[in-house]
């Protein structure tokens, strides 16, 4: 039998410990494919946060720095300022990036820090067991919003990409999804553009990827994919929010 595809070199060839139906695996692979295709492996450093993606300390086959909850953009800033010719990225979930790490994210972006953030937005805290995230949609029932998210009690979900698009520092901002094959392909194209923005020295870049959490949403993987199409995308429109000249 002929092998049509291989494990991209930037990924460890070991089983992942993510839940069934989790989209982290797809996103890891897209990141790895782009790193391989752009020949960034030997100069790449990834900063991993706290959340499900902490598990990725075992998965990326290039230099990795595990950081405190929300602080990845600050850590990546330190790495990049130490080694300006390296390729430096963070890989963060929505609780990490949009809640506890909001300050670090906004300031790395406005500084135009030459780092790239892969922002995995599934609207919930996964690792801690399904608490409400700053990105949980109105009405969503979670461990800490058992009667559903309300404006009165919890305020409104943050649209990170739109918010960051107000700043001068970012060179590339896009929101994509990984719940369909075209979505996956567009996500890969966006990651490539984001990495290119860094390599060309144009500014901060971020790809917000709408994803799922079947376990904590209490859904089958297929229903979870449907929920993204029917609910999440309506509040978080897909598209490019900032594309610097030269991209």
């Amino acid at each position: 039998m002929e092998q049509l595809n291989h494990m991209p070199t930037p990924l460890m060839d070991i089983p992942r410990s993510y839940c069934p139906g989790c989209t982290h695996g797809i996103i890891h692979r897209l990141v790895a494919e782009v790193i391989e295709e752009m020949d960034l492996l030997q100069k790449a450093i990834i900063v991993l946060p706290v959340g499900c993606s902490t598990l990725a300390v075992d998965y990326f086959a290039f230099d990795s720095v595990q950081s405190a909850h929300g602080r990845a953009p600050a850590v990546a800033t330190g790495v990049k300022r130490a080694l300006p010719d390296r390729f430096v990225m963070t890989y963060q979930g929505d609780g990490d990036l949009a809640s506890i790490g909001a300050a670090e994210m906004v300031h790395a972006a406005t500084r135009g820090e030459l780092i790239t953030t892969i922002f995995v937005n599934n609207g919930i805290y996964g690792m801690t067991g399904g608490q409400m995230a700053p990105t949980s949609l109105m009405g969503w029932k979670t461990e800490t919003s058992p009667y559903g998210r309300t404006a009165q009690a919890n305020g409104y979900p943050i649209r990170v990409s739109e918010m960051l698009a107000q700043l001068n520092g970012p060179a590339y901002i896009a929101r994509t999804d990984v719940v369909s094959v075209p979505g996956i392909n567009k996500t890969k194209a966006a990651i490539k553009k984001a990495f290119t923005a860094q390599i060309k020295g144009l500014g901060y870049s971020i790809v917000e990827i709408l994803s799922t959490c079947p376990t904590n949403w209490g859904m089958t993987p297929v229903d979870a994919l449907k929920r993204v199409k029917e609910e999440t995308m309506k509040y978080y429109p897909l598209g490019e929010f900032k594309v610097a000249e030269g991209l």
């Binding site: 602080r71 850590v75 800033t77 330190g78 130490a82 300050a103 670090e104 300031h107």
Partner: peptide, 23 residues
């Protein structure tokens, strides 16, 4: 390199990254 961070929380994490990179 001198960088004024957005907070002490960020500053110490910049140190973390810079030291992790070997400086």
């Amino acid at each position: 390199t001198f960088l004024q961070a957005e907070s002490e929380v960020a500053a110490i994490n910049m140190l973390y990254g810079c030291a992790a990179a070997g400086k």
